[in-house]
Simulated assay, not measured.
Amino acid sequence: MATGVVDGRPITVTGSWDKSVLVWDLTTGKQVGEPLTGHTRGVGAVATGVVDGRTVAVTGSGGGTVWVWDLATREQVGEPLKGHDGKVGAVATGITDGCPIAVTGSDDESVLVWDLTTGKQVGEPLTGHTGGVGAVATGVVGGRPIAVTGSGGGTVWVWDLATREQVGEPLTGHDDEVGAVATRVVDGCPIAVTGSDDGEVRVWDLTTGRPVGEPLTGHTSRVRAVATGAVDGRPIAVTGSDDGTVRVWDLTTHRQTGPALTFPAPVKAVAVTPHNTHLTVAFGHDIATLSPH
Rank of each mutant, 00 (worst) to 15 (best):
A2Q: 07
V13Q: 01
W17H: 12
W17I: 13
S20K: 14
T28R: 11
V32T: 13
V46R: 01
T48K: 04
V50W: 03
V51A: 12
R54N: 09
G62I: 10
G62T: 10
T65W: 00
D70Q: 10
R74L: 14
P80W: 06
P80V: 09
L81D: 08
L81W: 10
K82M: 14
V91N: 07
A92F: 01
T96S: 12
D97W: 10
G98E: 05
G98S: 08
G98W: 04
V103A: 01
S106N: 02
S110T: 08
D115G: 08
L116C: 06
T118A: 15
K120P: 05
L126F: 00
L126D: 00
T127A: 00
T138N: 00
G139F: 01
V140N: 05
R144V: 15
I146C: 01
I146N: 00
G152S: 13
G153I: 02
T155Q: 12
D160G: 07
R164P: 01
Q166I: 11
V167N: 05
V167D: 02
P170I: 11
D176S: 15
V178C: 06
V178L: 06
V181P: 02
V181R: 03
V185C: 05
D187C: 05
P190Q: 12
P190H: 12
I191D: 01
T194P: 06
L206D: 02
T207H: 01
T208C: 08
G209H: 10
P211C: 10
P211R: 13
P211V: 11
P211Q: 15
V212L: 14
P215K: 04
G218S: 10
T220N: 12
S221W: 12
V223N: 09
V223E: 11
V226Q: 11
V226E: 09
G229P: 09
A230R: 14
V231P: 06
D243G: 08
G244Y: 07
V248I: 15
W249R: 11
W249M: 13
Q256R: 15
Q256T: 14
A260N: 09
P264N: 12
V272F: 03
H275W: 07
N276E: 10
H278C: 13
V281N: 03
F283S: 14
T289N: 11
P292F: 07
P292R: 08
